[in-house]
């Protein structure tokens, strides 16, 4: 198996399963430690950064990043390349850990529950050997979303970014940006509608 030796090309990417997904599949199939190391080097600093954006202290953020990467190792079999890329899947794991960290009542089985319920992780058991076409379709779908995201007007992009990172309800975003709540909601709607359109154009 080939271990990715550098970051994948920046978005928008070519339509192909990316190197990180390939690394994840290698962990699922052969417990490939080299692949895990590559994934860790790439994703752990980003997961930590994501946690810190939500206001978490650096040391706690690093603990959660460790926990997230351990989950990646242990749940690699649940990864389904026809449903999501590695980046999306790892984001969902990190997000779920952030939710659980927020309530500080972490039980191992609760974590398993949440990840089991995650959409990006998978709604059903993954196929043992994903069809190449389905993986390509998934990459194409994600590529379309990424392009749509990249082409959002700045005011909409800001609201989406804040929604993901600042861990605050929209009322707080409105206060922070000094705009009415209705404006936040309409920007969210416009942005999400664009992403929806990007998906529909593929059908």
């Amino acid at each position: 198996m080939s271990v990715p030796d550098g970051p994948p090309a920046p978005a928008p990417r070519a339509v192909s399963p990316d190197a990180w997904s390939t690394a994840l599949l290698a962990i699922a199939r052969t417990r490939d430690r080299g692949a895990f190391e590559a994934l860790f080097q790439h994703f752990a600093p980003r997961v930590k950064s994501y946690m810190m954006r939500g206001g978490m202290a650096a040391a706690v953020a690093e603990e959660i990043a460790q926990e997230a990467m351990l989950s990646v190792w242990r749940k690699a079999e649940l990864f389904d390349a026809t449903r999501a890329s590695a980046t999306t899947w790892i984001f969902a794991i990190a997000r779920n850990l952030r939710i659980d960290a927020a309530r500080r009542d972490i039980r191992a089985d609760a974590l398993l529950d949440r990840d089991g319920a995650s959409l990006a992780a998978s709604l059903a058991a993954p196929d043992p050997a994903p069809l190449g076409d389905a993986v390509l379709l998934c990459a194409e779908r994600e590529g379309a979303v990424r392009s749509a995201l990249a082409s959002l007007p700045e005011d909409q992009a800001t609201i989406i970014r804040l929604s993901f990172f600042e861990d605050q309800p929209h009322a707080q975003i409105a206060r922070e940006l000094h705009i009415p709540l209705g404006t936040v909601k309409s920007r969210v709607r416009l942005a999400v509608v664009r992403l929806r359109k990007a998906l529909e154009e593929l059908l």
């Binding site: 980003r46 954006r53 650096a58 980046t87 984001f91 779908r141 989406i160 993901f164 990172f165």
Partner: peptide, 16 residues
């Protein structure tokens, strides 16, 4: 799709 957006935004953060 929104999870894809979340992953993309996480990917774009400066790594800690």
């Amino acid at each position: 799709a929104l999870e894809v957006a979340g992953g993309t935004l996480m990917e774009q953060l400066p790594p800690a």
